[in-house]
């Protein structure tokens, strides 16, 4: 086909308006959330002492960290879905959850401890954390990738990795309400490993499905 003819055809389609990437991403995540929530209530559920736990600032910190991760990763992934975007200037957003976690680690370090370091680090849920967070993130990761496919990321693997952070952040928020290990040391270790796993899956799948 001659290029002039193709151009005329594209111009004829000018009236078509695609929905913004952010809108599709939000819609896809909302559609996938019930699956993750169902997995959560079927297998885990909210810990019974949640009401008392809320008085423990380290319990609350878990949600602060995981939600900060999800929100900043969403902003970064939307930025990366534009072809001319560079990671500079936006990547620092991801330092917010990391900074919150470090602040938690430092303040725990300064408090008088009843439990030895190894007990706090290993906790009683590390294996569940390592499996539940990645499993619950899978529906959300799929949704995030479907939403970001509407974009045109020049760096599909990186964008997929950030989609992994986003879905792991949301899944970890759910998981945090079940887990009785509130020590920032536990969170920094096991949540991070689980998140890294999901991030790697996101990068791997993203490098294939996010190319445009």
């Amino acid at each position: 086909m001659e290029t002039d003819r193709l151009i005329r055809t594209l111009a004829a389609d000018n009236a078509y308006r695609a929905r913004p990437v952010g809108f599709v991403l939000a819609l896809a995540l909302l559609a996938a959330a019930p699956f993750s929530v169902a997995m959560f209530f079927a297998e885990l559920g909210i810990r019974p002492d949640a009401m008392t736990a809320m008085r423990n600032p380290f319990f609350d910190l878990k949600f602060l960290v995981t939600l900060a991760l999800a929100i900043s990763a969403m902003a970064v992934s939307l930025h990366l879905s534009r072809p001319e975007a560079s990671a500079h200037g936006w990547a620092w957003l991801l330092l917010i959850p990391a900074g919150l976690l470090v602040a938690g680690l430092v303040s725990e370090l300064m408090m008088p401890q009843q439990l030895p370091v190894m007990t706090r680090l290993i906790g009683s849920n590390s294996r569940i954390c390592m499996t539940a967070v990645p499993l619950m993130s899978l529906p959300l990761l799929a949704a995030a990738l479907i939403g970001l496919r509407r974009g045109a990321p020049s760096r599909p693997a990186l964008t997929g990795a950030v989609a992994g952070l986003l879905s792991a952040g949301l899944a970890a928020t759910l998981y945090a309400s079940h887990c009785t290990d509130d020590s920032p040391l536990f969170v920094a270790t096991w949540y991070t490993i689980a998140t890294a796993l999901v991030t790697a899956i996101g990068a791997l799948v993203g490098s294939r499905v996010l190319r445009f």
């Binding site: 990437v21 534009r82 072809p83 001319e84 045109a152 445009f212």
Partner: peptide, 30 residues
């Protein structure tokens, strides 16, 4: 033609506040 089709189908990722050329060249380069 490959580039033109991508430009057309990914138009909504262009930010109207930003200049068009860098966006176009990024699509084209890809």
């Amino acid at each position: 033609q490959d580039i033109l089709l991508a430009v057309h189908l990914k138009r909504h990722t262009w930010d109207p506040e930003a200049p068009f050329a860098p966006w176009l060249f990024a699509i084209a380069r890809n």
